[in-house]
Write a protein that binds this DNA or RNA. Structure first.
Lengths: 263, 263
DNA sequence: AGTGCTTGGAATAATGTATTCTCTTTCACA
DNA sequence: TGTGAAAGAGAATACATTATTCCAAGCACT
């Protein structure tokens, strides 16, 4: 899944031609199976080398790797849909509210689970574990998540403080040292003020951990360890709910990592 | 599937070299993914052209076609096993932290989803929707969840207040009327003080909504609408994490109910 | 206009695949 | 036992696909 997701996530940061390729692939996933790089290039209207470069930009060795990955995706798509048929009854036979939400939630969690690499997660756990103090800053939409996270950390004996924003923010940052960690949580946007906080922290040698929407945004660029959430498809009011749910899932993962590293 | 079957079927009519290739492919199906015709030839100990001829003899246009066909075979195999093992593969093939947590979480959410009846959920949603004010009281272990819930309600325009406990608790209850709702969230125990609050509220005609561990405990008995969380199996440190996760899931369900009833 | 940066394509190098051709082995038959 | 047809295997080679290099055009900033 990762492959197409990556494409969708990075779509916004792509150049025109790259986007053309991405769109075609996303639309005609199955066609790819029988396309050579040249054919794809022709049908999209770009040069063959652009196709190769596109593949590499996404992190593959070359076009054949991309092709396989895409293919995997939908050879896996049957897999996923098999899984879905499975999971649907799991969330309740009836069309209860729980099951409706469960479906979407599951999807988002799944995507989020796929996007974060184990390395980064363990790095994050290690950073938190070794930190003297942890400042947790969030943009307003993620305040609830941030506070929830803070609670859990405190419960585990980590010296975490939730940054309510405002004037205190700066003085908090200024009291951090290189033994500390700044944890930045933001939702969809890059929130100027958070970037500023992150930069100030880094100047002081503080390790910066970010949880952002998956794609390269300002807040994530200015951090040492980057965790991501895959935003749900535009789903009206539900979007924020689902997004937070995914954020919570990542946070819970960190907590669970801390718990098991404790033992 | 046909592909590997064909090979096995024709094995007897094959020449020595062909059989060598077939055997290798049958044994090392998955390796093929990353082998070029030359590599396969080398590892089997034949010439590259023999590999190509082998592919063609089996009815494929060339080596790449064979390769894809073989790959298809076991991408499809994963499909089948995915169906069999339930939802396990959904949370990531890899043993990342995320996927480990995902498994347990899924289980707990599922149980929780099953236990709550749709009627009760909609009743809860309706109660919240129609309430003038909502007091949210929690025992200490569920404070984080309660606060998270409060945030969401506020965001949706519900006049929710999180009860920090202590002396204020009583005066808050005393200002509620029969248009209001008291929402009680507790974890494992029955928390005396919450029961007391619930009773006092009911005396005043306040509607009481509870989210408790699933079994009849004091707090749940004294409420009008009862929602439950199924506590996870004893799982050491993880238990509280999972329990909260399930609580959150129910809360999110209510929120999503509110969102859709809004439209 | 000038500089540095990014993007995309033409040309080309490198790799991978298919075909041809030749050599060897095998076996039937005189 | 010798001879030739047939089949199999690999070297060499033609062909196809993919990766890289290099250069031109567009663009922001000076």
């Amino acid at each position: 899944m990762t492959c197409l997701l990556k494409m969708r996530a990075m779509r916004d940061q792509m150049s025109v031609n790259e986007r053309k390729i991405a769109d075609f692939v996303l639309e005609n996933t199955k066609l790819l199976r029988d396309y050579s790089s040249q054919q794809l290039a022709d049908v999209v209207g770009v040069s063959q080398s652009s196709v190769v470069k596109f593949s590499q930009k996404l992190g593959y060795k070359g076009y054949p790797s991309l092709k396989l990955a895409v293919y995997e995706t939908y050879a896996g798509a049957a897999q996923v849909s098999a899984g879905e048929d499975d999971a649907r009854p799991r969330f309740g036979k009836s069309d209860t509210l729980l099951s409706q939400l469960g479906q979407k939630k599951l999807e988002v969690l799944e995507n989020t689970a796929h996007i974060n690499e184990a390395d980064h997660l363990s790095a994050a756990v290690a950073a938190i574990r070794n930190a003297r103090c942890i400042q947790i800053s969030a943009c307003s939409g993620s305040a609830a998540v941030a506070q929830y996270f803070t609670y859990q950390l405190l419960e585990l004996g980590c010296w975490a403080v939730f940054d309510q924003g405002g004037r205190l923010q700066q003085s908090m940052v200024n009291s951090l040292s290189d033994e500390d960690v700044l944890c930045i949580i933001c939702d969809l946007g890059g929130e100027e003020s958070l970037v500023e906080v992150a930069n100030r922290a880094r100047e002081r040698g503080v390790k910066v951990l970010s949880l952002t929407r998956y794609n390269y945004n300002a807040a994530s660029i200015h951090s040492d360890i980057r965790l991501y959430v895959v935003p749900p498809e535009e789903d009206q009011g539900m979007q924020r709910l689902l997004y937070r749910s995914a954020q919570l899932h990542v946070m819970e993962t960190l907590i669970s990592g801390l718990i098991s590293s404790d033992q």
